[in-house]
Computed example of a mutant assay.
Amino acid sequence: MRRIAMTGAAGRVGTLLRPFLRQHVEHLSLIDVHEPADLADNESFVGADLSRLDEAIAALNGIDGVVHLAGLAGGVDMTALLQANVLGAYNLYEAARINRVERVVYASSNHATGFYPRGQIISPIDPMRPDSPYGLSKCWGELVAGLYYDTSGIRSLSIRIGNAGAYPNSERSIAIWISARDLAQLVEIGLTHPSIAATVVYGVSDTDEKWWDNDLATRLGYQPQDRPRDYARIEDRTEGRVARAFQGGGFCEINHDGDIRLRDAEGLVRKPETVS
Rank of each mutant, 00 (worst) to 15 (best):
T7N: 00
G8E: 00
A9H: 09
R12S: 15
G14M: 08
L17G: 01
L17Q: 02
L21H: 11
L21V: 14
Q23T: 13
H24R: 13
I31H: 11
V33S: 05
H34E: 13
G47T: 07
A48D: 09
D49A: 09
L50R: 04
R52S: 13
I57N: 02
A58T: 14
L60A: 11
L60Q: 07
H68P: 01
L72T: 14
A73I: 10
D77T: 01
M78Q: 02
T79I: 13
A80E: 11
Q83S: 15
N91G: 01
Y93T: 09
Y93Q: 10
E94N: 14
R97L: 13
I98N: 10
N99Q: 15
V101N: 14
E102A: 15
V104S: 11
V105A: 05
S109K: 06
G114D: 06
I122L: 06
D126C: 10
L136V: 13
S137V: 09
S137L: 11
V144H: 05
G146M: 09
Y148D: 05
G153E: 10
S156M: 03
R160C: 03
N169V: 11
N169T: 13
R172S: 09
I176P: 02
I178K: 04
I178S: 10
S179T: 09
A180M: 01
Q185T: 07
L186Y: 05
V187T: 07
E188M: 15
E188Y: 13
I189M: 02
G190A: 01
L191A: 07
T192K: 12
I196Q: 01
A197P: 00
A198W: 02
V200A: 01
V204I: 15
D208V: 12
G221N: 08
Q223H: 01
D226K: 04
D226V: 07
R229Q: 03
D230L: 06
I234P: 05
R237H: 07
E239C: 04
R241K: 08
V242A: 05
A243P: 05
D259P: 00
L268C: 13
V275M: 04
